[in-house]
Write a protein that binds this DNA or RNA. Structure first.
Length: 577
DNA sequence: GCCGTTTTCGGCCCGACTGTTTTCAGTCG
């Protein structure tokens, strides 16, 4: 997929045009807009070009005749002349340097012309020899800020996962609430949209004492240093290695502020454009008419309504078609956070889990689960103490005994996380598989097969008639391991024919299937199970990350089998039921 | 350069914060 590369090039072209003589900032904005569209596009641009040609490209918002031709040129020849020409003139690594907080194209080019700085490496040298503070337009403070920003860049290993950032944000929000300085404190931004990784933490505060709120926040344990601090807006660097924006607004603009600070950027831009067309203007302070009179500002619901559409849930706000559906009153009714009543992927001390079956079951019961499927590893996963057929039989007996003891307060189901071997066969005997209430199957070993062989391997397994759920389908680990090479379209078709349920593994490093693949799978008519893959009782809390991801995938309650009671759920899991 | 229930020409989202060129440009979200 070349989308990211193309988006990066368009973004760099924008930066370079900004440096050209004359006021071309609308042209710059056009390139930026196109870059943003392509970066967040769900479909491969090359596929669009192949299937629908130039017309297809022009359907991408922000892409017209000119940018479309440049994208086509790049896909067909691997080159973009406009980019190369500009790059000759401005031989600077904008992509790297703009990552330094406070550096934009104008400053970057000044640093290049005066000091020959072309990349992060040469910037670092200039800073350490104190050449920047002597430049006109820069000063001691700018140089110090740049040094700090460079340090942040090196210490942050890219984006944090949702599972790392959300608890941190909640901890800060809780402390702010307890401070009694605020009427209301809410987490906004990409965390509220439940994106799988986040670039920073956004917290919105309603208070009549903004100054005190900022001072209080600056002294929290989580805060490493202050990047910027004004009356209503501050940015802190946190010890976990990301920044945190805190904004203080008044009660009467809470809704518009939440709408604004939740994003996504591209969703917000589209909303503002629609507002303008209707003769309004929308900002974080409210929706206003031409005379500047406030139409709506206290609640998000009111703002969406007054602009002429249904309320859009935060997880859907990515400008990938949700606004159009909201106008037509055709939004899906998303699954809710309390809708899951069972967990079908749970580990115990029988393989690599930390707690016994009984302990996991009793915790699950406590948090309101009606059933859990115990799914310890099969023999090939010897590092995870996977079990052979004989051991599985023992463990089934234990489950029978426990179910009797629990007297139906919670039902424990028999399953196993069974390896899909290299040839597509399953890692246990049919006799053992038949004893299970359902089979959870997945690829673990031999991950480096090519796309065709890996696809065949999975299809062989899923068409065996024995697989109930395909667990963490792509096998990716966020920030750590690439997904398996798979032709998901082909596999989803086979899965549909065989009634195989797709898993959404809620383990925060996995979130697999991801939002985009969930939408694709749903288009094939597939059903889903949202599971925690819990290895200890506290991991059951991960379920919200899975539900958030499902909501990002536009799933409704009826798409997810473990929202159903046990009889209906097992029926939906036809294999082995 | 893009785009059209005001337009095929003439508009294009907008407010906060910072450092420094002391009145605002550059950057950010």
């Amino acid at each position: 997929m070349q989308n990211k590369a193309i988006a990066d090039m368009l973004e760099e072209i924008a930066s370079m045009i900004e440096l050209e003589p004359g006021d071309r900032h609308f042209e710059v904005r056009a390139y930026r807009r196109a870059a943003l569209s392509i970066e967040t596009l769900q479909e491969d641009v090359a596929d669009i070009l192949r299937n629908r040609g130039m017309e297809g490209l022009k359907e991408i918002s922000g892409v017209g005749e000119g940018i479309g031709a440049k994208i086509k040129e790049f896909i067909e020849t691997g080159k973009m002349r406009k980019y190369d020409e500009l790059k000759k003139k401005y031989p600077v690594d904008f992509k790297g340097l703009t990552k330094v907080q406070g550096l934009g194209p104008k400053k970057i080019i000044k640093l290049y012309r005066k000091l020959g700085i072309t990349d992060l490496e040469s910037l670092k040298k200039a800073i350490s020899s104190h050449r920047i503070m002597k430049l006109e337009g820069f000063g001691e403070k700018s140089e110090a800020e740049m040094e700090k920003a460079l340090g942040f860049l090196e210490s942050s290993k890219g984006r944090l996962t949702l599972g790392q950032a959300l608890p941190e944000a909640e901890s800060i929000a809780t402390k702010l609430r307890k401070s009694k300085l605020a009427y209301r404190v809410e987490v906004a931004g990409s965390l509220r949209r439940m994106r799988e990784t986040i670039g920073d933490i956004d917290i919105l505060v309603i208070s009549s004492e903004p100054k005190k709120v900022m001072e209080f926040a600056a002294n929290l344990d989580e805060v490493d240093s202050v990047i910027a601090m004004g009356e209503t807006k501050a940015t802190f660097w946190l010890t976990i290695g990301t920044s945190c924006d805190i904004r203080v607004v008044e009660q009467n603009s809470f809704g518009s502020a939440m709408q604004y600070f939740t994003g996504s950027k591209s969703h917000g831009v589209k909303m503002r454009q629609i507002a303008i067309k209707k003769g309004f203007s929308l900002s974080e302070y409210g929706l206003f008419d031409k005379k500047g009179k406030a139409i709506a500002s206290e609640s998000e619901e009111e703002i969406y309504k007054r602009i002429g559409m249904d309320y859009i849930e935060p997880e859907m706000r990515e400008n990938i078609g949700e606004i159009e559906l909201a106008i037509k009153h055709m939004l899906p009714k998303l699954i809710r956070y309390g809708d899951v009543v069972g967990d079908l992927h749970v580990h115990t001390t029988h393989s690599d889990g930390a707690e016994k079956i009984e302990e996991m079951a009793s915790y699950a019961e406590k948090i309101g689960m009606k059933y859990i499927g115990i799914s310890d590893h099969s023999q090939s996963e010897f590092v995870a103490h996977g079990m052979d057929d004989a051991k599985f039989m023992e463990y089934f007996k234990e489950i029978d005994r426990l179910n009797e003891k629990l007297e139906g307060r919670i039902r424990i189901l028999k399953s196993g996380e069974v390896d899909i071997l290299k040839d597509g066969s399953l890692d246990l005997s049919n006799k053992t598989l038949d004893e299970m209430d359902y089979v959870l199957a997945t690829v673990h070993g031999n991950r480096n097969m090519d796309r065709e062989s890996m696809t065949k391997r999975v299809i062989t397994a899923l068409s065996s008639g024995r697989v109930g759920i395909w667990a963490h389908p792509t096998g990716r680990l966020i920030n750590a391991r690439e997904p398996l090479q798979l032709d998901l379209d082909k596999i989803f078709e086979v899965a549909k024919d065989n009634d195989v349920v797709m898993e959404i593994d809620a383990y925060p490093d996995r979130l697999d299937l991801n939002d985009e693949n969930i939408r694709k799978a749903k288009s094939y008519g597939l059903k889903f199970a949202i599971d925690t893959d819990a290895h200890r009782a506290s991991n059951f809390d991960f379920i919200r990350y899975g539900i958030g991801t499902a909501r990002r995938g536009w799933l409704e309650k009826k798409d997810v089998i473990n929202t159903m009671n046990i009889e209906r759920m097992l029926k939906a899991l036809k294999a082995n039921a």
